[in-house]
Write a protein that binds this DNA or RNA. Structure first.
Length: 267
DNA sequence: ATGGTCGGCATCCGA
């Protein structure tokens, strides 16, 4: 089973690249963030032609997430949730969750796809919204899910989990994406039972980075951040083969500013 | 030492 998480920075602007990528790699599960696409304009037909079912929630201009599943290999999603549980309802479209039923009574896979708020600047209202959003995500896991079951939580977390995930720990000390409260929030997710899949297989750094600024030369200088993460519960980590960052997809003509992160699992 | 680029939407904002 191959799963990818990818912040596409506008699905409609990226559609040709996304479809070409899906045809080249044939992933079974695809978690997309920043689709920037209202539901009535979501390119479901184009994705279906490419062989994928889509579960999505979006809004005009900003945010938006989707989970695509390969029709040929994957059962239709059930138990769909399209907003981060909790009150008040989050007005921003940043969360989608599905269950992919297993074959012949086998246990299914729960998939959560998130686009964590950026946070704008340390100490800003947006920063506290980000921390609050992460604590609501933790509360949802604690109240509704079980780390002993197969579950993946993946997406753009807008947090570099450790000093291995930034180019220079000194330069990033207490900066947005690397502050203690942001990292503590990820630490709580890990304490609940999630494992950072890439770091489990690639224990040294710095990097690999998944996001690079559009400013010229950022990719060549390897001046990025690792903020696109695949968290998995232990029964899935047991089946984890490898996790890779497709840096090629960050190059060339009009790429997203994020590279796809791909995890392969044994059946 | 500074600031560079995108996408969506409207001539600026968020990233």
């Amino acid at each position: 089973m191959k799963l990818v998480t990818w912040n596409v920075n506008s699905l409609r602007a990226r559609l040709k690249r996304v479809v070409a990528w899906l045809e080249r790699h044939a992933p079974d599960v695809v978690c997309l963030q920043e689709t920037k696409c209202p539901d009535d304009l979501f390119p479901a037909r184009d994705l279906e032609v490419a062989g994928y079912r889509a579960t999505f929630t979006g809004q005009k201009g900003l945010n938006g997430v989707a989970i695509l599943t390969r029709i040929e290999t994957t059962a239709a999603p059930v138990d769909v949730v399209t907003a981060l549980p909790g009150t008040p309802r989050d007005p921003q479209r940043r969360f989608v969750e599905v269950v992919l039923p297993g074959e012949g009574g086998a246990e299914g896979l729960r998939v959560l796809c998130v686009y964590v708020p950026n946070g704008q600047a340390v100490g800003s209202d947006a920063y506290f919204y980000k921390l609050d959003w992460l604590s609501r995500l933790l509360a949802h896991l604690r109240t509704s899910h079980d780390p002993a079951r197969p579950l993946v939580l993946c997406g753009d977390f807008n947090v570099a989990p450790t000093d291995l995930d930034v180019p220079s720990p000194e330069a990033y000390r207490d900066r947005l994406f690397a502050t203690t409260p942001e990292r503590r929030a990820l630490g709580h997710l890990e304490a609940w039972g999630l494992v950072d899949a890439l770091r489990a297989r690639s224990p040294t750094g710095p990097g690999p980075f998944t996001w690079f600024d559009y400013a010229p030369g950022a990719v060549e200088r390897d001046d990025g951040l690792r903020i696109d993460l695949i968290y998995a519960t232990p029964p899935l980590v047991e089946r984890l083969v490898e996790v890779t960052v497709d840096l090629d997809e960050r190059r060339g003509d009009r790429p997203s500013d994020h590279a796809p992160v791909v995890a392969a699992f044994r059946p």
